[in-house]
Design a protein around this nucleic acid. Structure first.
Lengths: 186, 186
DNA sequence: GTCTATAGCTAGATAGAC
DNA sequence: GTCTATCTAGCTATAGAC
């Protein structure tokens, strides 16, 4: 077998960058080729299903990332909940490049691409919600209150990302990350 | 002059529906043609600048809508601030079809279309922010607190729309509209 | 496994009849 | 003002050499 020119990790990084920045319709195979350094035909060799399979692979990759950097951290009983929350907030900051990036889940939520990935996207969001519900309960909140806080957290992350993008100003994102810590600690 | 087959109002409604549901890249001239009942060549007659000009016209149209149904309502000194707020929340509910629609500003915020409309989109958001800041001050909040509440309002609207779409559940949107009234009244 | 070359199609956009 | 017909560029996807 001829060696891979680009390893899976690098490949994913490039594919994800294009998909979340341009969305499913806006990202062409040419864009994906240029971003990864692999020619179009090579991309089809790695992903015979084409652009749809690429998007699914990226969703699986970010799903794994969330499992490790969000879910496992927030549910790690060996640390105090506040420490877990602060660690996750730091990870979210990195994930979204301090508020300058677009969430890939949001990018694939247009009505043209949603039918293709709807179930995957819903599951990904529910993992985040689950994780925040659990840390909320470990903070001592009731199940109901923890649910509310988890949803508010996701709303603040997604909403502030939209605003920071539209206003070309990361302040809303940064401020809401701080606010998220506050709503769990007051 | 031959009469228009479709009037400006109907035309805008169809164009907006497609653009906000599919985004700029996902919406083809064929889609726009089918949604409006006008053939592609006729669309180019009405909008010589093509798809870009169509998107700009839709942004102008929704901008006017916001001016009337958000800004003017929230700054109408002849009514108590709570009444204005409730009226605007009702209008927002209609605008986003109870949480099932996508915000056109968000749809055009992908990195592929943002460079084309960035300034327009930023202005539109700032009109909303301005309007909510003013009603906040009329509620008696300080300038700084009113700013904070206005941003939180926009974050809640945009964030809950993303979640409601992704989860295929309008509850986050509906609950956040109620929460918006709460944050101004407690 | 990666590449060049290309097939087949659909996109945005235009010409010209009515 | 609207239409049919069409152009060209770019798209997804494939064939086949190395």
């Amino acid at each position: 077998m001829r060696p891979q020119k680009v390893d899976d990790q690098q490949l994913m990084t490039g594919l994800m960058a294009v998909l979340r920045s341009k969305g499913f319709d806006g990202a062409s195979m040419n864009d994906l080729s240029e971003a990864t350094g692999l020619k179009k035909a090579s991309l089809y060799h790695r992903f015979p299903g084409g652009k749809k399979e690429i998007a699914e692979a990226v969703l699986a990759y970010t799903g794994d990332w969330s499992e490790i950097n969000i879910y496992q951290v927030l549910t790690d009983q060996s640390k105090p909940p506040l420490v877990r929350l602060q660690e996750v907030i730091a990870n979210i900051r990195v994930l979204y490049n301090d508020g300058q990036a677009i969430c890939i889940l949001r990018a694939l939520t247009m009505d043209s691409s949603l039918p293709l990935f709807g179930n995957l996207i819903e599951e990904r969001f529910k993992v985040w919600i689950d994780a925040f519900v659990q840390v909320g309960k470990d903070f001592g909140f009731t199940n109901e209150k923890a649910q509310k806080l988890a949803l508010e957290t996701l709303v603040r992350v997604q909403g502030s990302l939209v605003l920071s993008k539209a206003l070309d100003d990361v302040a809303p994102f940064q401020e809401n990350l701080i606010e998220i810590e506050r709503i769990y600690t007051i």
